[in-house]
């Protein structure tokens, strides 16, 4: 289970505190697939980073009782001076996964071939997101954070990533951040709207979309 308890986050912009999140409460259980809708700048990415533990809230608490992926769709999780293979080894060691198995899985899934031995800074953004997705699937998290789509990369690969994530929905939770209704409808069973720094949950997808459109 993942629980957010009155989470606040502000950033200092030109000497003034800008509040992005003002008391977000949420509970996510295994098997949930939640879409988070919000306009640009509503704080969707900030929320993902806090859930992942990349950044920390100014107030409130995040209780993580399951393993949570980093936000997928950013290259941020990879170290640009290390080769793809060294990145895989590093992440496998962090999560106590068998290194050779993880490497094999990523080589097969990300289809990077020779590039696995090259530094990540030489990768295209599509290659980076393929590797990041492969790596997160290899680790096998309880909860996946997916930012705006793993659609970077070619269409065929996006389809495969989508399939793999869909296949895990039963045993893993999924949190998808997007401003596309279609994506949320394809992936999620419930949705919430992030507005004015607060998260409003709707059990029914149509209700959530109506609220989102009314913004």
């Amino acid at each position: 289970m993942l629980r957010l308890d009155g989470v606040w986050k502000s950033y200092r912009v030109r000497g003034r505190d800008k509040e992005v999140l003002r008391g977000v409460d949420a509970t996510v259980r295994k098997g949930d697939a939640i879409g988070i809708l919000g306009r640009n700048g509503a704080g969707k990415s900030t929320l993902m980073r806090l859930i992942a533990g990349v950044e920390h809230p100014n107030a409130g608490r995040i209780h993580r009782e399951m393993s949570i992926s980093w936000p997928l769709g950013y290259g941020g999780a990879l170290h640009s001076n290390l080769s793809g293979a060294d990145n895989v080894r590093f992440v496998a060691r962090i999560y106590g996964r068998p290194v050779d198995w993880t490497l094999g899985f990523c080589e097969e899934f990300a289809e990077l071939g020779e590039h696995m031995r090259m530094p990540v800074r030489t990768y295209s953004s599509g290659m980076q997101s393929r590797l990041a997705l492969a790596l997160s699937l290899a680790v096998d998290f309880d909860c996946y954070l997916v930012d705006e789509m793993v659609a970077a990369g070619d269409a065929r690969f996006a389809g495969r990533g989508r399939e793999e994530l869909m296949a895990r929905r039963g045993r893993a939770a999924l949190i998808l951040v997007s401003h596309s209704e279609e994506l949320v409808r394809n992936f999620c069973t419930s949705a919430a709207v992030l507005q004015d720094g607060k998260l409003h949950f709707h059990e029914d997808l149509d209700q959530a979309f109506a609220a989102y459109r009314a913004l």
Binding site: A52, G53, V54, R64, W70, Y74, G76, H79, S80, I94
Partner: peptide, 8 residues
């Protein structure tokens, strides 16, 4: 910074 993408 990239390291902190891993909650652990």
């Amino acid at each position: 910074a990239p390291l902190f993408y891993h909650a652990r």
